[in-house]
């Protein structure tokens, strides 16, 4: 974590910024239409949202676009949020939907420019093997992994976000972890032989 800070990167395991009572008040104010509160809310969420988008798309420019889209969608849907219910699961469900829709409509970038965008930050990553393995994962498996481990959603919440049953989420997580494990083992073997 300290190493990550020194590298100028932010960990995905930061404490959710909207769980405190101040965070709850902020959400309430933003829901009431206070733009300053909304700005502060996205300031607190931006690291995790941008990180989530980056881990999913592996491209800094696209991560920026997706994070922006998630926040605009949040603003437009704040009126539908029920303040009696926890904010984070509701928000991440919205973020997951925005991510799915974003992937559907996005035009793939030329391979060269994508590689440049990834390489820009890959050199600074503290777990490059895992990042590489995650990048190779099918999006259908990567999204549940990110929502569960990155956004810290429960299996039920991941299921709600992706319109999947809990057993289906478990199955995807199992397969995803198995694929990640295989990729990591292969990477280790390559490293040992070289």
């Amino acid at each position: 974590m300290r190493a990550a800070a020194a590298l100028g990167v932010r960990s995905v395991s930061d404490v959710p910024a909207t769980h405190s009572s101040a965070g709850v008040d902020l959400v309430r104010q933003a829901t009431g239409g206070d733009l300053d509160a909304f700005e502060e809310l996205i300031r607190r969420l931006q690291s995790r949202v941008y990180g989530f988008a980056y881990q999913h798309l592996r491209d800094v420019h696209e991560a920026h676009d997706l994070a922006q889209e998630i926040f605009v969608k949040l603003y437009r849907n704040l009126g539908r949020y029920d303040p009696e219910r926890p904010f984070e699961p509701w928000f991440w469900k919205l973020a997951a939907n925005a991510t799915i829709n974003y992937r559907r409509k996005r035009v793939p970038l030329p391979a060269e420019s994508r590689d440049d965008a990834v390489d820009e930050t890959a050199g600074r990553a503290h777990d490059p093997a895992l990042l590489q393995a995650l990048a190779q994962l099918d999006p259908a498996y990567r999204l549940p992994i990110l929502l569960h481990y990155y956004a810290d959603l429960s299996l039920e919440q991941v299921g709600q976000s992706l319109k999947l049953t809990v057993p289906a989420v478990k199955s995807r997580l199992h397969r995803a972890r198995a694929q990640l494990r295989n990729s990591l083992a292969e990477a280790e073997q390559v490293q040992e032989t070289s």
Binding site: G8, S13, Y50
Partner: peptide, 9 residues
């Protein structure tokens, strides 16, 4: 996975 880091926004 929980300790993964990303570039700052």
């Amino acid at each position: 996975l929980r300790a993964l880091s990303s570039p700052p926004p």
